[in-house]
Amino acid sequence: MKWVSRQFGDLEYDENMVIHFAEGLFGFEQFRNYIIVHDVDSEPFRWLVSVENEGLSFPMLEPGMILPGYEGHVGNDKEIWVLAALKHDVEQSTVNLRSPIVIDRRSYEARQIILDDESLPFQFPLVPGGNGTKGR
């Protein structure tokens, strides 16, 4: 399949790799199908790229890089990502630990959940000492 993303230009993907969100993401419920794009320039981030809206993409990170053991909050059998609100300045950048993306590794069915754990902030600083709703 071919897709043209505003940020990434021409993308080619296999239909089997499409991640399906039956309910979409919060605030973006109308878009259900995404692929994960690995952009070498922005490693370690990956991009959740809509294949229905050419302007829609979300940078995300493996949560273990930010908070070791985080997977235990969700369940170890799933692939887990947290979305990153990146500002040009790393100190202003945050990751959303409260509502991760959870992907079933076999079916590629995914959903964004909200964890019932108030110790996990929506805006967790990407780096120690950075600005977020919780210091680290």
């Binding site: 605030g27 979300f58 995300m60 979305l83 509502s99 929506f122």
Partner: peptide
Amino acid sequence: AQKENQAA
């Protein structure tokens, strides 16, 4: 969650 998604 919507607000954070919009920021991302």
